[in-house]
Design a protein around this nucleic acid. Structure first.
Lengths: 190, 190
DNA sequence: ACAAAAACGGAGCCTACCTCCGTTTCCCGG
DNA sequence: CCGGGAAACGGAGGTAGGCTCCGTTTTTGT
């Protein structure tokens, strides 16, 4: 659903693109989303010009990485929708969401942007992900375990807030996320 | 409790420090915490060297502004503690906290740092503020309106998360904060 | 009014971002 | 296998902001 690029590119170009993405992934994980692009290029063994030809802005690079994550979350959500009871599906998916958006510092902020900004190239895959999340929420509400007056938008804002807070304050306290999400879901339950 | 600086400074130095703080305040409000320091110096009518002598790092400048905010929140908390019933005091203070930490983009992240980092110069006034917040929470728990198994730390993380989310997604939706905090407090109530 | 101390200011260095264009690599038709 | 044109490469260099260093100016005490 992503990656619809025609195979019209030269072999070296495709190879370099992959290496850049791989190095960007690890470098962002180490230094956060503001890591030096020159360093990413060097690590990938290409010139800075090549990086900028493939990804004209930092956003473009981040978006290429994020798109994959969103698509994965969408797929996970569909699976949970089909195999798990409403409430468990929602809580499990939320945990996956927080985990996916906490892999490197600054990512949460990037995830938050396309939630509201329709001009982003990410908007499509982000919307797909949101829809699955909204569906999971709706089912939990219909089954009566989650209060009905919570909008999908508010739900995402709250969960993203928890993800951000966790990213900031306790990168090394895995049990805290669980506790905070529990607290949050207690508020959401009717 | 802050501002304990002896009057041992030269008159022009004190004047410039005040002008820098004032311009930093408005410039950060306009452009977020990453605004150009050169611009702040220019607006204040001093050289960049002067800015750096007074505030060796961006953090130092931010901290000078934040210290005042923390102290204000501490005072507000003490007043509420003395004049309002437990639950109202807590919710009102929380609203004040979110408002104070949302006046310019990026501030929330700066507020979050000293929560855990003891090496910050801010830690003292931040701790004082936290203590008042914790006391407000404790009273609400004793009065039976808030569940007892919520730690002050978790409480701050959640509230800061909401503040951040609001700062990101809806700088122009004042009623949303209220709604999100209501949701949060529903989870906190027993 | 004078000298020492305090404070000022901006030139200049550094780092990271990003563009531009001469050079190299690929790939296809012959 | 080869040659030429298109595609892609790479890094020099211009720009902007962060921060330092030191010669000059201002204040202050006597």
């Amino acid at each position: 659903m992503h990656e619809a690029k025609g195979p019209s590119r030269r072999a070296d170009a495709r190879r370099n693109r992959e290496r850049l993405l791989a190095e960007a992934q690890t470098t962002f994980a180490e230094h956060g989303t503001r890591a030096s692009l020159e360093q990413i290029a060097t690590r990938a063994g290409v010139g800075i010009g090549t990086l900028y030809r493939h990804f004209p802005t930092r956003q473009d690079l981040l978006e290429a990485l994020l798109g994959a994550r969103f698509d994965t979350l969408t797929a996970t959500g569909r699976t949970l929708l089909a195999t798990r009871p409403p409430e468990a599906a929602l809580t499990e998916w939320t945990h996956a969401f927080v985990t996916a958006t906490t892999t490197f510092r600054g990512l949460t902020a990037e995830v938050a942007r396309p939630l509201d900004d329709e001009t982003t190239r990410l908007h499509a895959s982000c919307t797909a992900m949101r829809e699955v999340g909204a569906e999971l929420l709706r089912r939990a509400q219909e089954s009566g375990t989650v209060r009905a007056d919570v909008s999908p938008a508010d739900f995402f804002v709250l969960v993203t807030g928890v993800a951000w807070a966790h990213e900031q304050c306790a990168p090394d306290a895995p049990e805290r996320v669980a506790r905070l999400l529990d607290l949050l879901f207690d508020g959401l339950r009717r």
